[in-house]
Each structure stands twice: as structure tokens, then as C-alpha cells.
Design a binder for these strands. Structure first.
Lengths: 293, 293
DNA sequence: GTCAATTACGTTCTCCGTAAGGATG
DNA sequence: CATCCTTACGGAGAACGTAATTGAC
């Protein structure tokens, strides 16, 4: 029985403002007869007389006055909500939270973020540069919408597609025997002192079996920052492996990066999202940009 | 086109909470089919997909999430407004503003206010004790809902009905020649020094022509408070006229009040309200109490 | 195969418009 | 008597229920 519609409330407000059935009906694009019936329905549903009216005069009752104040608040909230939803739908507002490895967060991803921002300046872009394990965790806990990760995660839980395969490079001093080479094979790293990156990062997880198999010497060094890594290399503590997009972060005049010839050593990079939860309109647009653009 | 109803919003909220069409439909007392259609209508009106759903799972989209928050606020405002109107209708809340002369504000009116308050304790009763001119002015400016006044005001503007006629009394010292009399006629006040009440009060306006005609002596004294009046009388500055309900306010052992025999000198008292503006439910109830009870 | 959401379709009911009615200045 | 709100009545369309369909596990 108790059912109010926005049409009813709008008609009520129109009559409140005009105090005239004819004008109010005109504003609502209905006939005065229909408006009269609507007001009657409203009054019978509320069980309150809202207007004192005869053929000459229309005025609010005190109860109608209080109702009008409430309706004003309600329609304000309603319009605000509709606008919010509409704006999100048209990417005039919104938020996209990204989780990506430091190597891509440095340049590759910001480049695409800038393109997206230009098209949808109202959408907030949040970027977390995270190591591999943390990336999937942020997605799982709803702290990120889109992840970029070397591991695709559990297919039941995550929807992943490969973006590209990132070639790996050997990082060594410019005076290192390998420094003059155009390409290097993994097996040539045998007996080389090796500096690891942190073990929860994808480089470690991906390269560890390969370099161990190749017979590198463990220096016991394990660092997080690529700048630290290149610094250790520069001062002769050993060599290391870095992915292509991380090269810019360890660029020093006294170290050099040699591409690894082994194709299979290239690190895959996946675009990852939760399978159960759909993306917001803005996040979906950014997802499409990464996947296709 | 854009038309939302509370049924639609309630159905939406039910589905948000249950995440299950069957249960939500049960809560709304409709079939799952109807609920499905309602959600579809809602989504097409907003042009936003609100739920991700298949036969196994129902979950909000991010846009549905924001809409749900808005709807929660809207329904809260709506319920609050409906309750407010309902409470006013049933006199669980409300306000009645009264304007009455000091004589009636002292006892006669509070007595009825107490009776009303007992029945409708939630209704706030505001009382202004005002002189005659101010009473109609407060009604006119919407500062009072109900007036009690010796003047009915302009019949086009005010709706007035007489409550009673209040007998007038001569106030004099106990050692005054008239003090022993059971009744006094106006004409017997000839040559008596007379103390006036303030000229914007009804006593002055009502009694002035009569006492002047009778030939009283003007003392030049004109007071507002009845306690001042009785004090002046007690100290021999003259006599005065007071209405019956004001007697309690000038009760002193050294003054005495003698009823005026002239019936036409009795002061009429009107229940007054604005004609154009209807009373609130609470005010109407109090009006009826005064008029009939 | 079973369970749940959706679609198809028929019925009911709401809601609006036209036209007549009634009240007020 | 003119104006404006209201009532009466009929038709168009919305909304719900029943039943068949689709889809996921």
C-alpha cells in the first residue's frame, strides 16, 4: 500500500511552489485533473491533508509544510545519488587502484595512466608499486582493482591474461669479462658471484631456479631496491639479472646490461583481476586500455 | 521516463541484503520473477548495471555499491519524514503557540493547557501573554496559532468566536466609600480619581469610553502590571476597573473588588485564528478544547 | 540433473486524459 | 458567469503471476 514515486513527489513540490493546480500540472506535463488525483493519492497514502484548497486558493497545511521540507531533503539526496551513479557510469568520476611491480611502475604504467587521465581527468588513479606476492594479496583483499604481475595466480580466483614477455638482462661492471658481449646465455653465468633481489619479488621467483641450475655463486646478498642492486654490482660484489623495464632504474655509467639470449628466461607479465568481483566502469576502461591499447 | 518508486528501492535494498532473488522476493511479498523484472527496470532507468548475477551468484557491481549507499540515505530520510508527518497527525509531536491577555494567561489558560498536555504530552505549548493589539499582530505575522483577545479583529482576516463575557470589577481601598457595596453602577464612579491600565490593552480600550462618560477624574496614571495598579489603589491614588480573571493578580488585603452591576460593561473574550491559514492538527485540537471543553 | 535467475505471455490494476460537475468571487 | 478544482468514466500501459526457458554447478 505505502508506495511513493518520484513523480508523486515532484508533482507535490510543483504544487508547493506554484500553489496553482493548472500551472503545476503544466510544469509536470500532465492535466490538472491528473495532478488533483495525484495529490489525493498522496494525501490518502500519508493519511494527512497536505493542502488547504478551494477553487480560488491553494495553500499548504502545517503538516504539508513539514512534509515539504522532508521531500526537499529527499529529492536532494536522490538527485545527488543519481548524479553520482551517472558520473561514475560516464567516467566523470571514479577511482582505479593499480598494483604493479616497481619496474613497470616507473615508466611503462605511468605512460598509460597519463593517457587515461587525459581522457578521463575526473577519475582518480591510485598506483601501488608492490612485489609479486603483495600484488595478488591486494587484489584478494579488495585493496586494488587491477594487478600487473609476473604470476597469473590461481585461475579459479583470478582472471589473468599475459601482456607481454619481458626480456632479462645480465647486469655487470663495465670492466667485467661479459661486458663486451652482445648477448649472454644463462649457462655462461656459471661460477659468477650472484646478487639476488628480494625473494618475494618476481625476479627472484622466476630467475632463481635458472641461475642456480646454471651454477652461479651465491654472494648472500639480497636487496630490494634496484638502485642498491646496481650499486653492489658497480662496486664489484657480483652480477645480477634484471628485467628490461627495470634497466632505467639501475642506469649507471659503471655498469652495463647485456641481454640474455635464452628466450625462455624472459619474464612473463600478466594483467590480473579478481574473477568474482566485476570492475567499476572506470577500472574496466583502464583494464581495456592496458589489454588492447 | 525517470520514475523511481519506494517499492523499487525497497526491492533493490532487499536484494542487496540477501543477494538472493528468491529470499528478497519473499521479503517483498512478490515472486522472484517480479523482482527480476523490477531490478531490470531499475537498471534500465539508471542505465547502469547494478548487480553481477547468474543462476548461482548475485553480487553488487561497484556502481551498484555507490547506488546502494545513496538509496540507504534516501530511505532513511524518507522514513524520517513519514514518521514526522505521522507523529504530527497523531499529536505525538507538534507545537501550539498561544497569545492571550495576562489575566487569562495567569490561570484560566494554563488550566486548559495542563489538560491538553496530559492528553498529548509530546506537543509543545507556547504561551505569550500579550496586550490586545499585540495579539492580533502575532497571529497576522504567523508568530502565534491561536489568540485569545477582547477584540475579534477584522472578520475578513480573522475567524473569531466569543468564548465568554468577563464581568468587570471596581478596584478600591477597603476604606473607600464604595467598599461596603455589593454592586456598583458605572455612573456611581462620577468624580472618582481613576487609574488607567496601559492604552494598548483591552481593559483600557473597552472601559475608557464608559468611565469617561461616567465622569471619572483622570489621575494621569497609566500602568501595565496589575500588581502596580493594585499598589496604586492601595495607597490611595484612585480606583480602577479590572476584569474578573485579573482579580487574582491584584489580590491585597487593603484593596477590595466590587462587581460592576452594568451588564454591558462585561468584557467579551474571543477565540481568534487567522482565516486564511489552517491550523496544525495539534493546534486544531487545542482550539477545539478551548471552544467546546 | 538440480537449482536459480530469466523470459514469455496473459491478466489485473494503476494511472492518466476527456468531459461533466460544483464551488467561489 | 467565469475560473478553477474535483469527480466520473474509459482506455492505455505498467506490473505482477504462472509457466516455460536458460544457464551454472
Amino acid at each position: 500500500m505505502n508506495n511513493l514515486s518520484t513523480r508523486l513527489l515532484d508533482a507535490f513540490l510543483a504544487l508547493v511552489e506554484t500553489r496553482h493546480f493548472g500551472l503545476a500540472a503544466q510544469r509536470c506535463h500532465i492535466t490538472p485533473s491528473a495532478l488533483s488525483q495525484m495529490i489525493s493519492r498522496l494525501e490518502s497514502q500519508l493519511q494527512v491533508r497536505l493542502f488547504d484548497r478551494d477553487t480560488r486558493n491553494v495553500s499548504l497545511t502545517p503538516e504539508g509544510e513539514t512534509f515539504a521540507q522532508g521531500v526537499a531533503r529527499i529529492t536532494h539526496e536522490l538527485q545527488s545519488t543519481l548524479k553520482m551513479v551517472h558520473d561514475r557510469q560516464h567516467k566523470k568520476t571514479g577511482r582505479v587502484r593499480l598494483a604493479a611491480p616497481p619496474s613497470l611502475a616507473a615508466d611503462w604504467l605511468p605512460q598509460r595512466m597519463a593517457r587515461f587521465r587525459q581522457q578521463y581527468p575526473g577519475v582518480t588513479l591510485c598506483l601501488s608499486d608492490v612485489v609479486s606476492d603483495r600484488c595478488l594479496e591486494m587484489l584478494r583483499q579488495g585493496q586494488a582493482d587491477i594487478g600487473i604481475n609476473a604470476q597469473p595466480g590461481n585461475p579459479l580466483e583470478f582472471d589473468s591474461c599475459q601482456l607481454f614477455r619481458e626480456p632479462m638482462y645480465v647486469l655487470c661492471r663495465t670492466d667485467h669479462p661479459l661486458a663486451q658481449r652482445k648477448r649472454v646465455h644463462v649457462r655462461e653465468l656459471r661460477h659468477q658471484p650472484f646478487i639476488h633481489t628480494t625473494r618475494d619479488g618476481s625476479v627472484w621467483q622466476h630467475a632463481q631456479p635458472l641461475v642456480l641450475e646454471a651454477g652461479v655463486v651465491d654472494t648472500g646478498l639480497e636487496v630490494t631496491q634496484l638502485a642498491t642492486l646496481s650499486g653492489l654490482v658497480a662496486h664489484g660484489f657480483g652480477i645480477s639479472l634484471v628485467p628490461q623495464f627495470a634497466l632505467a632504474l639501475c642506469n649507471r655509467s659503471d655498469v652495463i646490461a647485456i641481454p640474455l639470449a635464452d628466450r625462455k628466461v624472459a619474464r612473463p607479465m600478466y594483467l590480473v583481476r579478481l574473477r568474482q568481483q566485476s570492475l567499476s566502469v572506470a577500472a574496466q576502461a583502464f583494464y581495456d586500455l592496458l589489454r588492447e591499447g
